[in-house]
Write a protein that binds this DNA or RNA. Sequence first.
RNA 1: GGUCCCAUCGUCUAAUGGUUAGGACAGCGCUCUUUCAAGGCGUAAAUACGGGUUCGAUUCCCGUUGGGACCA
Length: 487
Amino acid sequence: MTIQHPPRVRIAPSPTGPLHIGTARTGLFNFLFAKKLAGTFVLRIEDTDLERSEIRFENDIIEYLRWLGITWDEGPVRQTERLDHYEHYLRKLLHEDKAYYCFCSPEKLEIARQEMVGRGVAPKYAGTCSTLTSADVALRHKEGARSVIRFRMPSTILQFHDMIRGDVSFDTSLFGDIVISKDLRTPLYNFAVVVDDYEMQISHVIRGEDHVSNTPKQIVLQRALGFSTPLYAHLPLILDTNRAKLSKRFNAVSISDYKKTGYLPEALFNFIALLGWHPSEVGTTVNISRHTEIFSRNELIHAFDIERVQKAGAIFDIEKLDWLNAHYIKVCDEERLLALLSDFAPQAWRADPAKFRAVVALMRERMKRLDEFTEYARFFFEPIAYEPGILIWKKSDHDATKEHLRLLVSLLESLETTSFATPALLEARVMPFAEARGRGDVLWPMRVALSGVEKSPGPFEIATILGKEETIQRITHAIKVLENLSH
RNA sequence: GGUCCCAUCGUCUAAUGGUUAGGACAGCGCUCUUUCAAGGCGUAAAUACGGGUUCGAUUCCCGUUGGGACCA
């Protein structure tokens, strides 16, 4: 397919909840599509549901879209600021008798619906009010009767082309006369979308698969209004591990949650882009190694092709996200990482900036998420407590361990402070002793004495950060602990 | 229930009529090693099923099964 003009695309989230991973994905694909083709990306806030829309959610959506690096060129445009436009087209449809007022009560409609479902028929409006004259309508309105506006659904087999799935067709007679607006100032979703997409000159509608059945309704509306029809692409859904639409009951679905647990935006961006899409191995100018899935923002933009997106839903696999995140933490700019960690490390840990920096440099290699830093790095900054038993290496015993630590302390005391400058330097000084007594016999208790945990970076890395004084103090303490244990 | 959509390793996917069905994550093994990670090397693992079309189907068509979405 060739695209002649730069496309105009949009995302249209409802501010009824924080930015959801699915909305972010739709936004991301629209963004990639627009950037690739030098098009325009519009952000539209669909806030016509006054009951559920909240400004804090709109702010959250905007904040986290930006955080992810999904930027738009126009907007945000709010539907509540466009009520005049909807009213204009509503009046036009009413005037042309393509829409009509319906006075049927919800109770009666519900009874009719139940009856049709009982017969195994697709429930649809019977058209009771479709024959009302304008005089009837005027009278009912004068009496104060409540009404909605329905669209006269034409009966046709409507076919449209989907950029991802190919041709899709629906029998519109199954829809019945749908409600398009509660009143002249309260348009419903399918109607408002049609007006907005037309007026904003949206050329490609890229949205979730949950909207496929709305598409024929919208196309019929476009035709009634004399609007052109954009091209459609319905993205497969992101699935939970139980293969159902991602739900907040089982997983974190808000982007803000991912930020809070320490995922980097570029990791999420990279990961989400690969959920349901993958660059072609050939035919692209981007250098895509066959052995990596780490792609920069620009690589993703250049390689993006909407027609290559998968048709089937994709399960959200957090393990892969973790792996990507670990990678991005490793290659993150140091100053930026230090700043990012401010949300995860107590202020007191920064009392000695050089020490904090050294700890970060060491721990960044083993973190999958930023929030792990809080736990992994704690022993560098706070008093440690541990089960005395873990000081003893599996192949050693209590007395030997105590003896090794005593000798180690005197060795360390004899060293110049400069020996603690780098792990390599310290290692050169201590290793001969460790070799003589058995590496594990010395290194294991040394490391545990310094860290208080069974799993940690190496003893020399820790000791050089702690410094000579603190190192000796912790080992001395460990010896005391062992002595108390034997009594 | 009706309508629509979908189906390659556990997961994300590559291969659009001809490949020993490739990669990534996770797993497992080895290596490194004082521990845990990381790294390096290696390994296991898939075309849902049944019919066609074709010299040849992961690939095209039909059906079955399974899954999902939407409408309620």
